[in-house]
Design a protein around this nucleic acid. Structure first.
Lengths: 242, 242
DNA sequence: CGTACGTTTGATCTTTCTCAATAATGGTGG
DNA sequence: CCACCATTATTGAGAAAGATCAAACGTACG
């Protein structure tokens, strides 16, 4: 791995073009690197963070809590920033925590936003990133509202496969997705028990290799077909997701 | 009504400060005014629109389609732009149509984005708007995943009440919300039949005045309590939503 | 090796959907 | 202003997806 913030550059460039100068400006951002454990909190609901946290390794999730349980409303794979929206408003209604052990880069928000003002393409990339997150949330809304449990799980697996691939991390997915049933349940609005049952059916149908912790897709095309996956909503430039 | 785009200015200012000059720049944007009927399409999925559509009267909804039915993934009340995300990327994965009869202003995207570049505060307001839409989508995700049908309906009513109020349109809500059961169902991931049953229960419980077409809240405080509504996620500056 | 955490399984219960029939409503043209 | 048509609401009965509860089973890690 060359520069720690290289993966952030790659993330931005998946949707918005940057010049060499822009790339250098991002790589030059002050930052600290933190190793975190699964469950560690990166942003507490209600806080007004003064930093932008970028995932370098592992998975992070944004979540909201109610009496009837938590809901994970977005997940962030390596390369993805977790709280760009705080360049738009100070406080957060949700919190962010690591879903697995991992490493994050922490960038002071002021410096980030200064660089964005002086480099319009970076500002545009930030806008595109926030808009892409909104688009993903809307797709999740479609899943929650109109897809049944199996399609929902399958669709999420497909989405993550593409998002990881766009960061050059396909291997991680081929090797399996390190999320627990109860985390998947909180992402999908289901019960861990039911997630387990469906994963079992997937394994029986040959759609997935193991139903245990590292879940690996075995039949990409069939999975896409069965759960109606179309990567257009991810808004990657180019072939729609490579 | 003074200037047609005045309500857009008001929308932006609910989350992001603007100067007189910024306001003038927005009011000076070229635009055409269109009267539309319920069901009219404003943006077709897959298109690369060259205009920004702002709702002036009535309600618009962004929707996605699957074999198992449509899902409305966002709604837009008067004053709100419907497709700011196209300042970030060209194509759309969803379509936008009027949920009721109404009036829209259509602004050329190029001019809009020129004004945004020359007026940083307007660019910032656009960023805040897109981020707020994302935040709303995440809240809807929480509703879909972890709230039952009644809380979901109640929560939506509360949200719309606040959003309308922030545009000075509370009356419209006091007078009732002109959405059909089947539209509410497609917003909430439910069935029109079930929406009807719950509205009936709301009316019996005195939470709502009529269960027919214009649905009017009668007991704001109780409704907020029963469905766990907290307007923080709307990110209005000031008192959190007034 | 034992403890804590995660998974699997089965039985049962609820919420919400589905289907189908009937009743309102609202807008349109005569 | 009324009759008609299309759309939307209401109601009831039955079915289904997913939740809940509780127990047993694995497995990783100290």
């Amino acid at each position: 791995m060359t520069h720690p913030l290289q993966s952030l550059v790659r993330y931005f460039e998946a949707r918005s073009p940057l010049s060499d100068d822009d790339r250098r400006a991002i790589a030059g951002l002050p930052h600290s690197i933190n190793a975190l454990r699964g469950g560690d909190v990166t942003l507490r609901a209600g806080d007004a963070p003064e930093t932008c946290v970028v995932v370098l390794k592992g998975f992070a999730g944004r979540q909201r809590q109610t009496e009837q349980g938590r809901q994970i409303v977005s997940i962030h794979v390596p390369g993805e920033p977790t709280n760009l929206q705080h360049l738009a408003f100070p406080t957060s209604a949700s919190s962010v925590r690591m879903l697995t052990a991992g490493v994050v880069a922490v960038i002071p928000a002021r410096e980030f936003s200064d660089v964005a003002s002086s480099h319009p393409a970076i500002g545009q990339a930030i806008l595109a990133s926030i808009a892409a997150e909104a688009s993903i949330a809307r797709e999740w809304l479609l899943s929650m509202g109109r897809r049944d449990a199996s399609q929902r799980i399958g669709h999420l697996l497909c989405e993550l496969a593409i998002r990881l691939k766009s960061q050059g991390l396909a291997d991680l997915f081929a090797h399996g997705l390190p999320l627990k049933h109860n985390q998947l349940a909180d992402i999908l609005g289901l019960t861990p028990v039911h997630v387990g049952r469906i994963l079992k059916r997937f394994a029986a149908d040959g759609l997935v290799a193991n139903r245990k912790q590292p879940i690996a897709l075995t039949d990409w095309n069939r999975m896409c077909r069965e759960c109606g996956f179309d990567p257009a909503y991810l808004h990657f430039t180019g072939t729609g997701g490579a």
